[in-house]
Design a protein around this nucleic acid. Structure first.
Lengths: 303, 303
DNA sequence: CCGAGGCGTTGCAATTTGTGCACCGCATCG
DNA sequence: CGATGCGGTGCACAAATTGCAACGCCTCGG
């Protein structure tokens, strides 16, 4: 969109931290860029950047303006979507920031199902931990966030919330697999594999362990949920994960066992958007579908 | 703001209903304007106008886009206000659509008081009847609306609501002035002066009169509340108005008498803004002051 | 202590962009 | 059935924007 060019430049400068670098990024001369910025500052009535030796940095006014720009841009996209919508086929783009657990089964299924109905809609999926996901929404970089146990909840408007207990995952021949429900201490006594501290599952584990005067002491600590699922097939260890990220592989090699609720309360998987923002058509409809689909997952693993 | 020029042109075309007229309004050639519009339509991906012989008219896509533009513009104004705010003195502009009753005393007082604290803030006051006021908000033409008995209430977010009974106003030597409270029928039996039907006061009168199988039959019907207040000093007639628009002139020439609540229930004076919109600093603060000031008026005339 | 290298900024010429003017085809209306 | 007013277009010119080169400033390393 032509009329937002100056804003794009300003954003590039903010990102690059220097006019010259931003100029290069945007395939323009530093002088032209500089003059555009200065001119805009003049008619806007305030400087947007602190000029320091070695570059520039957004000042509060600049932050405010950039936020306005992103909001405008997102609103324009919404309008364009609505317009495309009223001339027949639905088009648009849905950008989602989500926790890892959604990657293997839930999200691909939901996206494919939606695209079957609306092939004109494209998707962007970003993997973000629970803290980052909210930043994504606040900067209009993502339309939706689907995260387990979000942290701050400011600027975060809940669309749907479903409880997800943490379950233990292990090889079928693991001794603990014989019980139908595990105590947390059983799991912590056994060698275990856990996600890094920034993840919600680990957060719940740590909290519950402290309560029972125990510690989570993983033999393998990782950022990858996928690695956890596969590692327990190689060494006799217990992994932790939430049901939505699990599915029986079908060959009986992997089993999941619930952990006693009194030891480890369920966490929440939350679908949300930026507070107060009105989403474009496609994201709004897709969010509705997600919300419905999440109902079916509520409280249990996939049968 | 330079980057919104095309939008301003589009709005002018929508308003004028013809490119050539709009071109003249905006001091530009029809050809230049036409090409700007066409070019924007192209990169936007949809036509904005129906081209009909004799001119153009916004199509739904155009309506949507224009709404986006107005929202963006208003949001930009808010940002500018915030920026001005954080560099010391508060600046900005407050645009209000209000009923006539607020003109003589309440609004001028409030505005003057606010400006005493913030001389950098300017005001725009538009007199609108209750139907028009909501349009004003929806098109972002006004920040606030202060109206008696609004009609539709869609897109209208109530900030404060205060009851305002209709009172009878008459010369001090009017026979009815001897009673402390009047019955509606007394007023209707006497020669009376009433506002036009589009006004809230009249609406309440008509409704109450019908209920008692009576009719409002004014000897003078007018759009001007000011005329009503002054007319009753010339002919022995009863006028109707709400307390917030009345004040004892001090010479004892004019008196107000409440009308029995069981005959004529109080109406509501409502301060509102566009639903979901976040106002610039100055309008937001002024609205807060208005809301507080309105509390003091609630339920009675000024002593 | 000073020169090298980075930065934002500015003067000036080149070029891209937008504008005005004249004109076309078309529908409407007296 | 011409006159009128409309949206749209070709083309030459005006205006805004760009790129290039250079300046002053600061930091940093020798």
């Amino acid at each position: 969109m032509r009329h937002l060019y100056t804003f794009r430049l300003i954003e590039a400068v903010a990102r690059a931290g220097s006019m010259r670098r931003a100029a290069e990024d945007m395939a323009i001369t530093a002088s032209a860029l500089n003059r555009r910025v200065r001119r805009f500052e003049e008619e806007f009535g305030a400087e947007l950047f602190e000029r320091l030796p070695g570059g520039v940095r957004l000042n509060p006014a600049g932050e405010l303006l950039l936020h306005h720009y992103r909001a405008s841009l997102s609103d324009l996209a919404r309008v364009q979507g609505q317009v495309a919508d009223l001339s027949g086929e639905r088009r648009g783009h849905v950008s989602i920031a989500c926790s890892q657990a959604l990657l293997p089964y839930f999200l691909p299924e939901q996206i494919a199902r939606y695209r079957a109905d609306h092939p004109g809609v494209t998707f962007g999926v970003k993997v973000r931990d629970r803290a980052e996901a909210e930043q994504e929404l606040a900067s209009f970089a993502s339309d939706l966030a689907l995260v387990f146990e979000p942290v701050y909840l400011v600027d975060f408007e809940v669309i749907r919330i479903v409880p997800q207990p943490v379950v233990a995952v292990m090889a079928a021949d693991h001794p603990l697999a014989r019980k139908q429900e595990l105590r947390l201490r059983d799991c912590l006594d056994a060698p275990h594999v856990a996600p890094a501290v920034k993840y919600g599952v680990r957060h719940l584990l740590d909290f519950a362990a402290r309560k029972g005067s125990r510690r989570v002491a993983p033999i393998v600590e990782t950022e990858s949920f996928e690695l956890i699922r596969h590692y327990v097939l190689h060494e006799r260890a217990v992994g932790f994960q939430i049901p939505i990220g699990l599915r029986d592989p079908g060959d009986g090699s992997l089993v999941f066992r619930p952990i006693a609720e009194r030891d480890l309360p369920a966490g929440n998987l939350i679908l949300g958007q930026m507070r107060g923002r009105s989403l474009p058509v496609a994201p709004a409809r897709f969010a509705q579908r997600l919300a419905n689909a999440l109902k079916d997952y509520a409280g249990g693993s996939d049968p």
